[in-house]
């Protein structure tokens, strides 16, 4: 029997965006255009800015989507900028985004890509 081995990925970061419900798809699309592999979305509730907008507060959905995108450190800035612009984060009520570094990760890596690294 051949020994199974684990490939560990390093130099990653996670971008987390909290946006209004329904806007998550736009965030994911822009992240993918900027080279991100994929994203995880989950639902949440939250408010803060909404109460300070007065009448226009009704336009801000209390239900939120939390989009998590894992990127390499090299592509981090490209994806971050792309998502920021697509999500209109410079408008109040449109959401919040932040980046945390990840120590290590693992997932499926195609065999031919692995072979290239082993040479």
């Amino acid at each position: 029997m051949k020994q199974r081995n684990i490939t560990i990925l390093t130099d990653l970061a996670m971008i987390t965006c909290i946006v209004q419900r329904g806007n998550g798809d736009r965030i994911v699309a822009s992240a993918r255009d900027a080279g991100a592999q994929g994203a995880t979305i989950y639902y949440a509730r939250g408010s803060g800015v909404r109460e300070r907008l007065g009448m226009l507060g009704v336009t801000v959905e209390v239900e939120k989507e939390v989009v998590q995108i894992i990127v390499s450190n090299d592509q981090l800035d490209t994806v971050f900028n792309s998502v920021y612009l697509a999500g209109n984060f410079d408008t109040p009520g449109m959401g919040f985004m932040y980046v945390v570094p990840l120590a290590k990760a693992a997932t499926y890596i195609p065999q031919e890509v692995l072979a290239k690294f082993r040479q």
Binding site: V49, L53, T59, T91, P92
Partner: peptide
């Protein structure tokens, strides 16, 4: 007490568009 936010016209447009168009 958090002060109310002053919106630019662009922000109002974006908020309304995001709300009404879908």
């Amino acid at each position: 007490i958090h002060p109310p936010i002053v919106l630019r016209p662009l922000d109002v447009y974006r908020l309304l568009k995001n709300y009404t168009s879908p």
